[in-house]
Design a protein around this nucleic acid. Sequence first.
DNA 1: CTTCAATGCGTACACCGTACTCTGAGTAAG
DNA 2: CTTACTCAGAGTACGGTGTACGCATTGAAG
Lengths: 252, 252
Amino acid sequence: MAQSNAASEIPIWARPEPAGRRPRFSRDQIAAAALALADAEGFEAVSMRKIAASLGAGTMSLYRYIATKADLMALLDDALLGEALVPEGEMPADWRDALVLVARQTRATLLRHPWAVHALYGPGQAQNEQAGPNGLRHFEQSLAALDGAPLDMQAKADVIAIVDDYVLGHALQAGEVIARFGGSRAMPAPATEEFMASRLASGDYPHVRALLTGPASQSLIDPGHLEERFERGLRLLVDGFAARPGTSRQRD
Amino acid sequence: MAQSNAASEIPIWARPEPAGRRPRFSRDQIAAAALALADAEGFEAVSMRKIAASLGAGTMSLYRYIATKADLMALLDDALLGEALVPEGEMPADWRDALVLVARQTRATLLRHPWAVHALYGPGQAQNEQAGPNGLRHFEQSLAALDGAPLDMQAKADVIAIVDDYVLGHALQAGEVIARFGGSRAMPAPATEEFMASRLASGDYPHVRALLTGPASQSLIDPGHLEERFERGLRLLVDGFAARPGTSRQRD
DNA sequence: CTTCAATGCGTACACCGTACTCTGAGTAAG
DNA sequence: CTTACTCAGAGTACGGTGTACGCATTGAAG
């Protein structure tokens, strides 16, 4: 009990999983339970009590395996990143293809669980420092993908960060769209829509009005178009890196 | 009171601000209080009780002005987006410059308040539907920025969405870095670092090891480099749009 | 069988959002 | 000026959360 304080300072990956007598659960099981619960009832429903209940255990029993809820999230994050890994041996040789594949895989995972971005970068997370095995593996893969690229280390790190930013932002926005309109209820609420219409009719937002009353408005919600858009931006970035490999060098 | 139920269905922007006898607070004041509290004590500290206290009011009095905490967040979001607006008349004529300026302004706002992305796209938000005046204005500005671009409506919407994705993702990651290392304590924890070192020494992550032990590792944290990286990706996107205006079909 | 640390978990506390309800003050009508 | 009515303000309470604490039970080692 002397280090119950220190325990929360040390990342969960540095603390040994209880392996002594006969632990009822493994961390993997707990992470799986959390993931299943998030998928079934939404990210906000993920609570210590509910997870414990879903495992058939008392609430406080979970704390034998996990020091704090943040640790649970670290487990959940790592499980997600495991899903985002490109299978061993499937990494293309060409660095552009490889980079695109990693990005696609990540996007697919983040959209399969629309709450994933929140789990990874939620308000209460201190995620980066806590990079688990799969998180490291994911980063390793990204760097390995650029092995053949004519970039120095610094540039590689930048390229990965830039693509990561893009993928993350896309998943955040698209995930929200999917979470709201995926459940087949496309219509927001009669009063809301009516209010919005009056806002637009005010003439203060002519461009927005033109967009939303035009045919393009449908594409904002269409999952197929979301993906097409994603690919477009991704290609722009990757092709840009290929055309201008330099770091801080610029032209124009 | 009959529609206390319906009130939460209708976005706050559609409900009139209490203007009857003598309301003690305006929504702007409440939003400002929430913003100040988030800046001072962090986003998670933003609670109804604390905001009410900071205004010198009883907790439940807030509910005279706001139907639910989600409404408070809508207010906060709109205040943030107000900060992200490009001042009237300062929009460059060239659409590339304009797009870049909007992106920069947005980034600056989101990084000035590292919790901003969480407020805008947090786990409990239903933000898009609730776009308030400043949110609409922001969107309008983005569309207006592209007025001179040789793009059809659909392509404009895509361009804005792509840049938005990038800015958002960048702010999310950079905001986390800033939130953690901005407060001068750069060192994570002795035990954590030691553990990380042993992980890297295992040889399972050769690329990561090469990166983190090299000179480029410092740049991951340096705010100046963060901005440089942001500009690089942004330029790649904007230049890409200029070079390949088409969506899937060609221009209008 | 005895011993004894480790496991499981019940209770309790501080905090959260908010439904309900009462109080008191401001305003309009008489 | 008095009265009546309405509505802003807020106290209390409920069900939820993360988790500190401490006790009972258990399973393996001696």
